[in-house]
Write a protein that binds this DNA or RNA. Sequence first.
DNA 1: CGGGTACTTGACAATGGTCAAGTGTGGTGG
DNA 2: CCACCACACTTGACCATTGTCAAGTACCCG
Lengths: 228, 228
Amino acid sequence: MEIIDFITEIPLFKGLPERQIVEISKIALNRSFNRGQTVFSEGDEANGFYVLLSGRIKIFKLSPEGTEQILHIFESGEPFGEAAVFAGETFPAYAETLEESEVIFFPRKVFMELIKRDPSLTMNMLAILSLRLKHFTRLVEDLSLKEVSQRLAAYLLYLSKSKDEPNNVELEILKGQLASLLGTIPETLSRILSKMASQGFIQVQGRKIKLLDRKALKDLASGEKFLQ
Amino acid sequence: MEIIDFITEIPLFKGLPERQIVEISKIALNRSFNRGQTVFSEGDEANGFYVLLSGRIKIFKLSPEGTEQILHIFESGEPFGEAAVFAGETFPAYAETLEESEVIFFPRKVFMELIKRDPSLTMNMLAILSLRLKHFTRLVEDLSLKEVSQRLAAYLLYLSKSKDEPNNVELEILKGQLASLLGTIPETLSRILSKMASQGFIQVQGRKIKLLDRKALKDLASGEKFLQ
DNA sequence: CGGGTACTTGACAATGGTCAAGTGTGGTGG
DNA sequence: CCACCACACTTGACCATTGTCAAGTACCCG
């Protein structure tokens, strides 16, 4: 498959004229990563941004003690690192592959030119940044106003939405990573999973989780308080 | 002062040709608010966005129990509610005036046209959204990876930067609002202020705070652990 | 001077983190 | 094919930070 075919499929470039896509494919650079490799680090000069072709990437912050908070997990087709390019500074977080991944890199300058000339590309970019903001709005809300069990319940229901068998979800990331995504640590996540299981809300088998009581989970996620 | 003079001064519209500014001033609508009034609520249709002319506005989330988390406090000249316009949906949070405020409102459609035609305006908008993202990145980091005293220390040092007398800062918001901005509650904030005072780091008199030991505050903010 | 609001303080509870010791599992090499 | 190692995950005991509830103080504004 040619790189130009990939690029055509990327939402960011939806609605662009063929001619433009060709131009974009010319300035794109390919890179491959193994699992667990660093794409960029916090503080690195943001001289371009990335689009994920295949694999998965986590964007995260680190505390001085080494605790990590995942800000975002990106799947194929999604751009990342764009904001730093427009703010014109350094990357504000780390990017690391969760599995073998392929990315394309767009050098800053050329892309800026492109975007100045193409209103449709610009509108796409504005929409993407806006959705990112909305995502963070929710993340802040969750971290600040909700408890871990509420966040977990919401996450399980969210996973379940994109399933054909909605009561059988499977975590696509390690539990440790899920903990970091939910703003907690593996021990706490583990405990809450067992508690939910003992309450009969879910049934856990490794990375497979059965949702036994969706109503209870929904109530939990939306902030209803339970005894016990 | 004419509205067109205000608009000329707004960073978002920096670098725009006179002609464009005139056009913008035509689609702008004025509105005034008293202290404590709601500009928009979470879930409201985002059929336009705002620029603050004077006063101060808080953007915040509410938990079901009524706890609030402030996402942002905007001062005059800053746009707010833009992201929701580009994402094309509803506002994801509440906006309420902290004091008597004047805003201008830009209806969605007209502004979208404008932005499609003017690359310079677009680049400004991209830069602003990117800075917002960066802001949230930091907020998430703080809420998830730092303790309240660390956040408070960082906030005091931040206040101190824009002062000519850097060791005499004055809170420009109520302590209760500061608590909500730092992701905590008034009681906790109060306790931490007293503790810092008893440690000799600061001296508190109402809303005026003297920074007595900047080094200690810096160490705190950057995550050094202290005994006691 | 009075009343409302902001703020403080105390006693208590709970959520969630730390540290330490397991259990389990998958993959590699002997 | 099995043994072992690394790594993910779990569980327990403990503790720290922070939130809850309640009461009291200070302060501003009319």
